[in-house]
Design a binder for these strands. Structure first.
Length: 479
RNA sequence: GGCCCCAUCGUCUAGCGGUUAGGACGCAUGGUUCUCAUCCAUGUAACAGCGGUUCGAUUCCGCUUGGGGCUACCA
């Protein structure tokens, strides 16, 4: 029996601008999980038709990040538009030959003036159609004279272009307000409109899932499909990601580059989980998703129409959740680069113990260094910090001395958090004072901080010698 | 200006004619704890407005208002 080819093919088609926008990552994610959910294919295409925005290494960077997030594409090699220039020209020529497109020789100045006039007349500001009906003679003369030209698509002047958007339902545009779009630039390169339509057709894309900012140009694309006699794909326009002030998520108001989030210590799985939930929900109360469970739970029908504010608060919370789920070893490895950057060195075993003490506190990996730097070097602090509630300096020093004496009794090989805790608690319980009268000064002496991991935890990691040294120092400065 | 899209707590959202309008983040309070965090419990806070349709509208329709996007030889 012949195998039926997969019907569902989605794609991610970024332009290589040098960094990956989180909004683009979400688009890629939705396309990927939609394809996988439906046993379909996920294709990648690089839309590098704007030479002026060319960035060296951007494409490689893009692929690296997608792979890092495990958004693996099925077309190898991937499609790259700059390698297909002849094809776009051929199709543009075909439209010209069929009188569905035309040469336009208008200068930028004339276009600017025309636009200003139409703006004043409160009319749509699109191209005024000056070159739409040039005679064969005029075209020949202009071409002969070597005048620069673009190719414009001839939009129908009447009728409606309607389509069903999977997210928005029926959408309708009046053809007469549609601009005669440039499809081939004067340098011979295609614009997005031409290239994406041709490529989506050739890749046999079944579903175009992209940002809502593309919604207004979708009728132009559909008309292009019709001009070529092709079946348009199904469209689904995603709600936009928003700044806190509800404008389109932009660099001005914080990080938007995926690389920056990673650098700041967000885990890829947390970031992915977070953006999944911006504009989509599973219909249940589940909030934690790995890639596999996303695929299982996903459906396009549950995507929202309204834009979603990118709320760092919730991202931080989610990231904390994922950090807490890591093993000490995983976390230590993830934190290593941050220590290296700070010039702090220690072996992995020690690092494991150190990061474990802050695992429940940090929200981002980048916080680990400042949160744990007191392990690396004895902290400076105000002696007042050592004093707990109603105690005075003298009593505090006395308690610390008693504590030190007890700790002295613990042998090097018994020096573990658990054992220290058991011994010291036993000792304190034998006294008339409370836990805080001993433990606060001890913890403060070891960490130099108001808030920190517990004293036994710190002592266990610090080791016997360093612990006793810090206690001595505390007693000293209390005098 | 023109066109298109959108509208439930501060934020992400559930709801698909009859609900005490639910959950999560945040925030607040309490418990656990020497502290902070974690964890647990409780609380806080929303259907933009006006008209219809209907026995009944958060839900369906229209208008208003508000927000956003597009309007490039950028994608």
């Amino acid at each position: 029996m012949p195998v039926k080819p997969p019907k569902i093919i989605a794609r991610f088609a970024p332009s290589p601008t040098g960094f990956l926008h989180v909004g683009s990552l979400r688009t890629a994610l939705y396309n990927y999980i939609f394809a996988k959910k439906n046993n379909g294919l996920f294709y990648l295409r690089v839309e590098d038709t704007d030479q002026s925005r060319k960035v060296e290494g951007a494409k490689e960077n893009l692929l690296k990040i997608l792979a890092f997030f495990n958004l693996n594409w099925d077309n190898k090699p991937i499609m790259i538009q700059s390698e297909r220039l002849d094809l776009y020209k051929k199709y543009a020529q075909q439209l010209i030959d069929e009188n569905k497109a035309y040469y336009c020789f208008c200068s930028e100045e004339r276009l600017g003036e025309s636009k200003a006039i139409r703006q004043r007349q409160k009319l749509p500001t699109g191209y005024d159609g000056q070159c739409r009906n040039l005679s064969a003679e005029e075209i020949k003369n202009n071409l002969g004279a070597g005048r620069s030209y673009v190719i414009r698509f001839k939009m129908p002047k009447t009728g409606l272009t309607e389509f069903i958007d999977l997210i928005r339902g029926q959408v309708s545009f009046d053809n007469k307000i549609l601009d005669d779009q440039i499809i081939l630039k004067s340098n011979g390169w295609p614009t997005y409109h031409l290239a994406s339509v041709i490529d989506d057709h050739e890749m046999e894309i079944s579903h175009v899932i992209r940002g809502e900012d593309w919604l207004p140009s979708t009728p132009k694309h559909i008309l292009l499909y019709q001009a070529f006699g092709w079946e348009p794909p199904i469209f689904a326009h995603l709600p936009l990601l928003l700044n806190p002030d509800h404008s389109k998520l932009s660099k001005r108001q914080g990080d938007v580059a995926v690389e920056d989030f990673l650098k700041n210590g967000y885990l890829p799985e947390a970031l992915l989980n977070f953006i999944l939930l911006l504009g989509w929900n599973p219909g249940t109360n589940q909030e934690i998703f790995d890639l596999q469970s996303m695929i299982e739970a996903f459906s396009l029908e549950k995507i929202n129409k309204a834009g979603a504010v990118f709320d760092l608060n919730k991202l931080d919370w989610l990231n904390g959740e994922y950090i807490r789920k890591k093993s000490a070893e995983e976390l230590a490895k993830l934190c290593q680069p941050y220590y290296a950057e700070a010039g702090l060195k220690t072996d992995l075993k020690n690092l494991k113990a150190i990061v474990a003490t802050e695992q429940s506190r940090i929200k981002k990996l980048s916080e680990i260094v400042s949160a744990t730097e007191f392990f690396f070097k004895a902290p400076d602090y105000d002696p007042q910090l050592l004093i707990w509630k109603k105690l005075n300096a003298k009593e505090t020093a006395k308690n610390l001395a008693a504590l030190a004496e007890e700790l002295e009794k613990i042998k090097e090989k018994e020096w573990t958090e658990k054992f220290i805790e058991a011994e010291i608690k036993k000792f304190i319980e034998g006294n008339k004072q409370g836990m805080g009268d001993y433990l606060w000064p001890m913890r403060a002496a070891l960490s130099g901080r108001k808030a920190s991991p517990g004293p036994f935890e710190i002592a266990g990691v610090l080791g016997r010698e360093e612990t006793l040294k810090r206690l001595e120092k505390a007693i000293e400065i209390l005098k």
